[in-house]
Amino acid sequence: MNRARLNRVINSSSREKGVETVSVTPVKATVSTITTRDGVAIYFKDWGRGPAVVLSHGWPLSSDSWESQAFHLASNGFRVVTHDRRGHGRSSQPWDGNDMDHYADDLAQVIEALDLRDVSLFGFSTGGGEVARYVGRHGTGRIKKLGLISAVPPLMLKTDKNPGGLPIEVFDGLRAASLADRSKLYRDIASGPFFGFNRPGATVSQGMIDAFWLQGMQAGHKNAYDSIAAFSATDFTEDLKTFDRPTLIVHGDDDQIVPIDASAHAAKALVPHAVLKVYAGAPHGLADTHKDQLNNDILAFLKS
């Protein structure tokens, strides 16, 4: 039955019953995804209106991990786009391409598809690597400002040239635990070092633990496994050297996941013009534990 015929039937029935007639408007389906050139569906959220801000999330999370910042910025005059990295959240789970080059190219295609310009681009943890590699591969033609929050650059892995990094055994242990019982791994990370809940006197939030676990379990098993190498063994030194826009670096000095000396302090040395804000006693997951402080710092930086 076509729409016109359906309207006549409903209107006729309504008149017979003595009720007011209502026209039927078809429901339109909209999907918040873009499809990359290699066929991967990338889910995104697009909140608010105003200057564009794009937020890239950490491992093994999704765009939901940015919701406090996205809500705050969108409520204060910005258009905020957050996306689920390939293999994470609601995006496709391709077997291949789980590396920083693909992550950066996917980010570029989200920005291009939405025709975003003068973008302020922030990355948390693994997302900081994605942002750095985006700048290294695609430049800053569309970028206004940059931010690295608890971010992995320049390099997490300990090497001869990076003696302050973490030994390969740490990441091999993550891979082994992921294969053995990744659900337990995510609970252990969230209930321990990620939010600093393993510190004496810490106020533990079961909600934060549950949210981390839920987002982690949404990620593809192979994708999250491969991403361990992507965030730990990728060297972003040369990418950081190309940062030519105002840059904000935020890191907690009690980050047990991405220690501050090999990350934020080293990144600051490579991006001398960057503003470095160190949160005393803050853990890796400061976007939740210190969300008000971070929200205010990001907003002030965007307005500066």
Rank of each mutant, 00 (worst) to 15 (best):
N2M: 04
V9A: 07
S14C: 05
S14K: 05
E20W: 04
T21R: 13
T25E: 08
V27F: 13
T35V: 15
G39Q: 10
V53D: 05
L55R: 08
L55P: 09
L61N: 10
S65Q: 11
S68E: 02
H72Q: 01
G77I: 12
F78N: 04
T82P: 00
T82R: 04
D84N: 03
R90H: 05
S91L: 01
S91K: 00
D96Q: 00
M100G: 02
D106A: 01
D106E: 04
E112N: 14
E112I: 11
L114V: 10
L121V: 13
G123R: 10
G129H: 11
G129L: 01
E130W: 00
V131S: 11
A132I: 06
V135P: 02
R137F: 01
G141N: 13
R142S: 14
I143M: 10
L157V: 03
T159W: 06
D160T: 14
D160G: 12
P163A: 12
D172Q: 14
S183E: 15
I189M: 15
F195Q: 06
G196T: 04
F197A: 09
A202E: 09
S205G: 12
Q206T: 09
D226M: 02
T237L: 06
K241C: 03
T242L: 14
T242P: 00
H251N: 03
H251T: 05
Q256K: 10
V258G: 03
A262G: 08
H265L: 12
A266P: 08
K268S: 10
A274H: 05
L276D: 05
K277H: 10
G281E: 01
Q293P: 00
L299V: 09
F301L: 11
K303R: 15
